[in-house]
Design a protein around this nucleic acid. Structure first.
Lengths: 231, 231
DNA sequence: TTTCAAATCCAACAAAAGTCCCAGATCATC
DNA sequence: GATGATCTGGGACTTTTGTTGGATTTGAAA
């Protein structure tokens, strides 16, 4: 585990890191296992040591919204770990994963003695907040093709929260990241292909026209289709 | 100013509060004045001493999304104040307002000496985060009638962020809180009225069937309309 | 290679949300 | 109590998104 790669522990001295390490316990989950569920009480602070973790919410009708897909130097559930409240989302192991967990109380104790951990946490929470504001605005204002362009460009929130290149995701996964359904996402992909922004490479899509994607991500509308007849 | 009503300053001793007070400067804005704009550099930490402040985002087409409507014991722009980055949204004075402002550097200095301010900030940011996650899920999953029901019920995020009873808001305001347009919001209001969940009282709407609203907020679909013919 | 499950493609349709537009109502105020 | 400005009501229409269902492709395992 490279602790220095995790913003929360940056700048801690060796004895402090040792204390952190003692407070954390290691846990493995097989692929597909539930790590914790929304509403359950404060599962604690999680660090991804190995593997891929999906953070998501489910609506009453059963549709998924994937908030994050996280790999190794990432952390999750900081909010519940810090305030001791219910977990704000579900977490499952996508692949086999290895996690380090620091309980709510233990984390508060560490923060009580390590000022640096406290200031790091403030900065990290601020960052998280920015990401959520951005995702919120995407959902209120942007069409699905526009969100899809942002996902391919891996802009801020999507780069922070989605540790997987879109070309490696299934359409189902992309749909759940963008908060829509597989069919709609497929349409959007075909749209971007017809517009000459993406090209298919095997099953995956690759970027052809980055500037075009950028325009779509900003203006929310597709520029004229490639094969639109010139009169 | 009652500092103890503000979670950030809860539990600070008198000399510490005095230091906070010296770091803050007071500023008044007339109704309609711009307080700061999205993207500008770190306007600092704001405390509403008097009046009503609107926090919002604008999309390229000019539509508004009102994130918060804040009155006296509220604060805003904590994220930029803490990380020194660009303001994540716009802020305007709705009525005449009086604000207390603590700059980025000054806030960091205060947090460096006042551990309690630091721990309070962690808790407050966690709370904010929960609110944004909730709003995000509302936007991805809930229909507008369902969001409207939540607004009337003043559930969590809406109660925290919207310091105004829905019955006192214009339809334009409600629309911008829920991320839609006035016309669509009007339709939704009429829908809830026809379903017997709300009643009109002058220009405002009042709750008739709280349980019905609750059901709508949770299930995302209108229960059968009142006047649906019973066969 | 065969076989099966998962992933994808796509068309047709339904529903929700957004847009346009104009007629009335209501309110402050002169 | 006349007069704008703001707010509301609501119809008609478009666009976007969601849904359904079936046809195909693909990749990994048997």
């Amino acid at each position: 585990m490279d602790w220095s790669a995790i913003p929360y522990f940056a700048g801690l001295d060796v004895p402090a890191l040792a204390r952190v390490e003692r407070a954390a316990h290691r846990k493995r989950y097989p692929a597909g296992a539930v790590i914790f569920t929304e509403g359950e009480c404060c599962a604690g602070f999680y660090i991804v040591a190995d593997g891929l973790v999906r953070i998501y919410r489910v609506n009453p009708e059963g549709r998924l919204h994937t908030l994050s897909l996280l790999r190794s130097p990432s952390t999750f559930n900081e909010v519940a770990a810090v305030d001791g409240g219910a977990n704000p989302f579900d977490a499952v192991a996508v692949t086999q994963v290895e996690l380090l967990i620091i309980g709510h109380e233990a984390l508060l104790n560490l923060m009580a003695t390590e000022r640096r951990l406290l200031t790091n946490t403030v900065q990290a929470l601020a960052r998280l907040n920015r990401d959520y504001i951005e995702r919120l605005e995407d959902m209120t204002f942007r069409t699905i093709p526009s969100r899809l362009a942002k996902l391919f460009l891996r802009e801020t929130a999507y780069a922070d929260q989605i540790a997987e290149l879109p070309s490696k995701l299934t359409q189902e996964d992309m749909a759940s990241i963008l908060g829509t359904t597989r069919e709609v996402l497929g349409r959007a992909l075909r749209g971007l292909m017809n517009a000459g922004l993406l090209r298919k490479h095997g099953r995956a899509f690759v970027i052809v026209d980055k500037a075009g994607l950028q325009a779509l991500a900003e203006t929310n509308t597709l520029p004229n289709l490639r094969e639109s007849p010139k009169i």
